[in-house]
């Protein structure tokens, strides 16, 4: 592995692990409340995979950081400004259509990203990606199927899916923003420059949305601020209140 700045590597791992942590949390909010029993099962399964990936990413992040922190320490004891997930995953679930559209937009990115990460010069990252990309392939197959089914369903389901896409699309661009951390990862062969993944992503997403009879909205404004921690949404703080409450209220316990 090429020499790389430890702090930059740490930040990169937080970006990966915080995405899966926060999205896993959001998806798990559906447990017992979804439209049909098969979806309860599928959503729980997706959340479970994402939490499993979080344990791997944040576990490694803690090691790289070198302060003796566990994945749990990082998940439950950081404040909002230290989180590095994209804004897309912290947005509230909305209706089932919005949840599934967000899942698809994320899964498409994640399946492509993890595919590249399997070739990482960092063996640990390559190993995590190898395991996670099997799950991501299944997730994107499932979420794209749902997006097509609901987009090309009834008039109501079509309208709801289009509304979901209109709402979420401005958050997609952040997954492809690159900064000096990404450039350092790319230079060391650890991870691809996200900007270079955009064509592959647009092809995949375009094909599925086309089949779903949905139109990508015209505007090209991009909401950013999550993956560099500059400015999260108001929603993240509430999510953390819930997620971190026990660890914060009863510090130092074993659970």
């Amino acid at each position: 592995m090429a020499e790389v700045d430890k702090d930059k590597l740490y930040q990169f791992l937080l970006r990966m692990g915080d995405n899966t942590l926060i999205l896993g949390h959001r998806v798990s909010e559906w447990c017992g409340h979804s439209p049909v029993l098969e979806e309860d099962i599928a959503l729980a399964n997706t959340a479970l995979d994402l939490i499993g990936q979080t344990q791997m990413w944040l576990g490694y992040a803690g090691e790289v950081q070198g302060e003796g922190k566990s994945a749990d320490d990082l998940a439950f004891l950081r404040d909002a400004w230290d989180f590095r997930n994209v804004l897309l995953v912290e947005l509230p679930n909305g209706d089932f259509g919005r949840t599934m559209m967000r899942q698809f937009l994320y899964d498409a990115w994640s399946s492509i990203m993890l595919g590249h990460l399997q070739k990482s010069t960092d063996e640990r990252i390559a190993a995590i990606a190898a395991k996670a990309s099997k799950e991501a392939a299944y997730h994107v197959e499932r979420s794209s199927g749902t997006v097509v089914g609901l987009g090309d369903g009834t008039e109501e389901s079509h309208n709801r899916m289009q509304a979901a896409l209109d709402y979420l699309w401005p958050y997609v661009g952040e997954m492809f923003a690159s900064d000096e951390i990404d450039l350092a990862m790319a230079a060391a062969g650890i991870a691809p420059d996200p900007a270079n993944l955009r064509d592959e992503y647009d092809a995949l997403v375009g094909r599925v949305l086309d089949e779903a009879t949905l139109a990508i909205p015209a505007g090209n404004y991009v909401h950013k601020g999550g993956r560099d921690g500059r400015m999260h949404t108001e929603h993240l703080g509430h999510l953390l209140c819930e997620m971190q409450w026990l660890q914060r209220a009863y510090p130092g316990c074993e659970w």
């Binding site: 017992g32 409340h33 979804s34 439209p35 049909v36 979806e39 209706d95 089932f96 259509g97 749902t146 097509v148 089914g149 609901l150 090309d152 369903g153 009834t154 109501e156 389901s157 079509h158 709801r160």
Partner: peptide
């Protein structure tokens, strides 16, 4: 609520 809110999803998938 889960059942009623989900009606459009079940109908949408059936129609598809």
């Amino acid at each position: 609520k889960a059942w009623e809110d989900g009606a459009w999803v079940r109908e949408g998938l059936l129609e598809h």
